[in-house]
Amino acid sequence: MMDPLLHVKNLKKYFPLRKGFLEKEKTYVRAVDDVSFSIRRGNSFGLVGESGSGKTTVARAILRLIEPTEGEVRFEGMDICRSSESEINEMRREMQIIFQDPHSSLNPRKTVFKIVSEPLIIHEGLRGKKLRRRVEELLETVGLKSEHMFRYPHELSGGQKQRVGIARALSLNPKLLILDEPTSALDVSVQAQMLNFLESLQRELDLTYLFISHNLAVIRYTCDTVGVMYLGKIIEMGEAEKVFSMPRHPYTKALVSAVPIPQAEQPETAILLEGDIPSATHIPSGCRFHTRCFEKIGAVCEEREPETYCFPDGSQVNCHLFKSTALDDEAGHGGGSGKPLETKDR
């Protein structure tokens, strides 16, 4: 089996909080707390979770836009966390990010041409006619016309702006595209267009996607594998179809049932979580979900952090409920204690 394109292992990012300047003890916002996953070439991996669960921090740490506190990010075997600045710059050509808000991620004072051509000038030193031809090509790939080339961002619609962002990201032929909520700012009628477009782009250019969204339907629609995050940790991971049709972790169950379904007959059996998401500065002891969990088994949930239990179908869950099942069912596969699992490699 081929090596994964991106391999994230025990990634942590703690942001220190200063409490007052005499205070010695530092508190931390544990935004990302031990996250491991890997993405194979040509696949789409989705990270879902509610606001503050650390999805975007993971993306930024992978690109080393922020320094990870601990852990390893391997991109084609190279450890990003231990590379020098110049090596990183080279590597960034291969991994690009598309941001959520197309309005604020494009410079309002530059034309589309300038925005898209900038990386080409910096990294490839293209000039003149060659540059223009390449920009035209890129705009065509993302479904914009050459008449859009000399427009300013405010003259474009939201969907068009997002396409400009994609053209800019594609300009250096990246291998990995990180899509951070790419459709959240778009209307539904445009959202479907955009997702179908991203899908065909992936096939055409052989891209690997890391898809970040709070919208479960979007992730299910686009991703092969999915990781569900809660307070900085992936609590369930597996094939998207399976995770969403047969969620194992109580949080995933609640999340899936909380999504409002646009249909006339509303199911009655919605699982309603109580309380709010705890703050990332005071992550609950033991299992971080125990304060809201409706399937809590007892003191063990409050005291011990659950290990990662793997299932024969390749999915993994961090929950004490599965301690026995995972081990008994498949002695060979189960009982992986916190070991990152090569997703879907069976």
Binding site: S189, Q191, A192, L216, A217, Y221, P262
Partner: peptide, 14 residues
């Protein structure tokens, strides 16, 4: 256009 859980890939039209 709406993506729902039951919708297959490419089924949403826009």
């Amino acid at each position: 256009s709406i993506l729902t859980f039951s919708k297959r890939k490419d089924a949403a039209q826009g």
